[in-house]
Design a protein around this nucleic acid. Sequence first.
DNA 1: TCCAACTTACTTACAAGTCAGTAAGTGTGC
DNA 2: GCACACTTACTGACTTGTAAGTAAGTTGGA
Lengths: 211, 211
Amino acid sequence: METARDDTRGRPAAERVQRPQARTTERREAVLKAAMNVFGARGYNKGALVEVAEQAGMTHAGVLHHFGSKEGLLVAMLKYRDGEEVAGVPARAQTEGPAFLQHLVDTVEENTHRRGVVQAYSVLSGESVTDGHPAHDYFQGRFHGLRAKIAGVLAEVSGSTDEQELADAASALIAMMDGLQVQWLLEPDAIDMPRILGRTIDELVERLRKG
Amino acid sequence: METARDDTRGRPAAERVQRPQARTTERREAVLKAAMNVFGARGYNKGALVEVAEQAGMTHAGVLHHFGSKEGLLVAMLKYRDGEEVAGVPARAQTEGPAFLQHLVDTVEENTHRRGVVQAYSVLSGESVTDGHPAHDYFQGRFHGLRAKIAGVLAEVSGSTDEQELADAASALIAMMDGLQVQWLLEPDAIDMPRILGRTIDELVERLRKG
DNA sequence: TCCAACTTACTTACAAGTCAGTAAGTGTGC
DNA sequence: GCACACTTACTGACTTGTAAGTAAGTTGGA
């Protein structure tokens, strides 16, 4: 028992919280939400820990106590965001078939009321292609997984077995959703994201059925 | 004649170069190319003037002499990039009808051999949605213009007169191109940009013809 | 044609600020 | 009583931007 506790010696609290106190989880959540705001509004590079800390009601050293480093905070935030989505609506990975495609449109519709979330996603995915960016692996994995998932659903819905065409269609669909977000952020009135996405999905499925 | 020269008094060299010396243009170009590299690799916020200057063979103060501020450099770089494109291939604004759609596919094909350019575009367009980003206006204008241009060409090619559908199709096409670039940068072997774009355009035109 | 007056294109040095991260200490809940 | 959840205080690395100086280039006029 003593030995089990021993291996926390010298470790930063961020690495693994062994015996968190009662309100620790909600304090960490406050920080993660603040990070969404700040990194969303300013990007990861320009977003300062001091501002994150301020919004969470502590000092920047307090934030580092929880997450070890700025990079650690970003990674935790990205994971938290995924978990939150899953909690909010039926988990993505569990939705199947046509329902999943509808789920995509619903999510996009919801996003038009959550500008901050969209902005954070757009800024960070753009930044993630820079050299050694801490979110690089996250977005690489995300795209990879999402592509496989969508290709699978499209196969199921359309009956197509053309692997390459399915993969291309999945990539194109994801690309369109992401690209529309940037245009929408810059000129909200000019872009109706759910309408465009919905129509594109319909056409896509119809085309795959025929081919 | 004296009065015409007089109004340069006290102005920073960056604001307007009145009587540039022989090699000034090529020195400025060297800086702009360096800026493409640095801002492309690290983003605008993390990209430092010192590194840009180093690559152009001068000090960071020399860069500021030419462009006044870091922001000024970015804006100049974006304009320079547009001009370069126009010089390289038949100017976008002058290409008409179906040729323009082929031109889009050609450009995307070329881009697969110019990773740096694509990376700079992706990073900066992502960053541009943050609060008060100096490239905000540039990208807003770019999307606005490109949307109008593509919608016009699609109308011409397909014979459709449904303004909303044409605008939506244009937005979707641009979104797809931009989104594919990010995915391609993260996983080049998984994404064949020209193939996906070419196929999408074909389907799009066919659909607009019918509708 | 040559020269003085001026501008351009930089450099070096510095100012002023911001930032992430660390070390050491404090109080509080378990 | 001790680990946890912080704070305060500080460091050092980087930032952009400015000021002042210098060498080279340009131009108008004698």
